[in-house]
Design a protein around this nucleic acid. Structure first.
Lengths: 309, 309
DNA sequence: CAAGCTTATAGAATATATCTATATTAGAGC
DNA sequence: GCTCTAATATAGATATATTCTATAAGCTTG
């Protein structure tokens, strides 16, 4: 049994294909097949059921591969020990970010980060919470930046900051005249919402969970907060925005922002990793950069009341 | 970097010798040397300082080897998953036992154990507590059977049973007339003790810690409880025995046993393993066998007041 | 049942691990 | 400080493993 064989087995599990796994491991498919066979022979059990398409791990294969992932993690940690000793922050960091955080946070973070740590390659992708969780579990992502708590016991959450929600109200809305709102003021039928799948949609709905709908005239669900803003600007109604999205607002736009009275609804944004997690130093560095690019007030680490996701 | 290379590095750390490590790994010394060199080259750091005799790991070598031990543990766990699936309890179990437990417990355990699990090879050695702790940490032992708590945070203790201490009193001692004793009755100058290094010696001394010595006429420190018994039988005085040592006593000997009034002084006997521990199923089986060969009353898992070791 | 995948097998080329023999180096004893 | 001894390193040969290319065999799916 070799580390390489375990890497191959894990790759087949991850990609559910010998051909694709071989490609990702930079070897030919027969090489990978042979090594998996040798591993299976060594262990005395079949790890994959090739008669299904796509290949699936056998019952015991699932257990062995889970354990193999732990072993490989320990092996990456050896490399980290070396890098750390050399005082270098190097490597690749694959980050998954939810779309309601990404555009307002990352552009402010990556510049400083890449300047400070030129030897780190960042790979950033926007995914839904569900997708990020999946990919963290199988190691396709090193960390996620998303709203928590997730209640996933194989993942580890480090809360980084707390972001309030605000409402964005068109001039034609009755709420425009109010200075500060309570969640009771919201009219669910006036509200522009994000698509299903965005955790922020659920949070916004839970803000208004006590309100009943009288039926919408128009159901427009969009994938981007920028669209929500434009809908209010051009088509009346209101929407709920995360605080960070206000950063580049014009004076005209700020006019339409209405804050909630305390307790303001808010979300907890965390860096989430696999529990036996690696790349600690790079991720520490990322956390520091995020904290530097976020208003001080949001860093408050005391457990606020946050909305479930 | 291969698993084999890491095994070699760990072996060199364990045995502090390339020659001996090679022998234990069943390869020649040049083979092992070459592989260690390749590993060092791959990692870009020297793991061992060969200019010292015996060889010592470098500062970073210590860290890398510690991590390598974790990786190897994960690799043993893969084998365990396979064995477990096959429903077999197989392998080797290296047990370290303290001398004040070994002769009264193990003979009753090993018979049944070996019959039930014929594919397990048991290797049992008597060592002091200190020695067992050391060997558990570097993996030379799989588990220890000793008095706890140890307060060692890299080790894991599973309390198995609680053993009272009794006194064994010669007919000429004034205590012989008493039916039950309190720890206050003990005369430290009459007491036969075990050698330094036996944890039970410390426990016995702590039973009498409030008593002052007037100076002994004879200081005879022995390594075995059997000797303590014979000293009382043939040379007067008293001694303290663990409860299990009474099991094969003659009627004549039982005459000399005096129990302590409640709360009886007692010790906690645990199976101790490394924290990232392996061979779970074999050790579970061992625990079951031990519990089967010990009087029910001693199994009480409620936290008794036990003596420090 | 054939087309288009995916995985397995065979044989050659390459790389790696191991061995034996021997050189070098470090430490112990005089 | 110099020898002797024990330990580690190096060299070259051999056996073993890994990988590749080419091709066969097995599943899916229309």
């Amino acid at each position: 049994m070799t580390i390489v064989q375990l890497e191959y087995a894990v790759a087949v599990d991850t990609y559910r294909s010998f051909v694709l796994a071989a490609e990702k491991c930079f070897v030919t498919q027969p090489t990978l097949s042979m090594q998996i066979q040798k591993l299976e022979e060594h262990l005395g059990v079949k790890l994959f059921d090739r008669s299904r398409q796509p290949v699936v791990p056998t019952e015991i294969g699932i257990e062995v591969i889970e354990q193999a992932r732990k072993l490989l993690n320990e092996s990456y940690k050896i490399k980290e020990i070396i890098d750390e000793r050399k005082g270098e922050i190097v490597g690749e960091l694959k980050i998954g970010v939810i779309p309601t955080v990404a555009p307002y946070l990352l552009p402010r973070v990556i510049g400083g980060f890449m300047e400070k740590y030129p030897k780190v390659t960042l790979t950033i992708s926007e995914f839904t919470t569900e997708n990020i969780i999946q990919q963290l579990k199988i190691g396709l992502l090193d960390c996620g930046i998303l709203a928590t708590p997730l209640d996933e016991n194989t993942l580890f959450e480090r809360p980084v900051f707390y972001e309030n929600f605000v409402s964005y109200v068109s001039k034609t809305s009755p709420l425009f005249k109010k200075k500060a709102l309570t969640t009771n003021d919201l009219d669910i039928d006036e509200l522009w919402l994000l698509n299903e799948g965005h955790c922020m949609r659920n949070q916004v709905l839970s803000i208004c969970k006590h309100k009943k709908s009288n039926g919408h005239q128009l159901n427009y669900n969009t994938g981007s907060i920028e669209t929500l803003i434009k809908m209010v600007d051009l088509n009346n109604g209101i929407t709920i925005l995360p605080e960070l999205s206000l950063q580049d607002f014009s004076v005209k736009q700020m006019d339409k922002v209405r804050y909630f009275k305390s307790p303001e609804p808010s979300r907890e944004i965390s860096i989430v990793t696999n529990k036996n997690f690696i790349k600690k130093r790079i991720i520490d560095a990322l956390e520091t950069e995020i904290l530097n690019s976020v208003p001080k007030r949001m860093k408050s680490k005391k457990k606020k009341e946050v909305l479930d996701i």
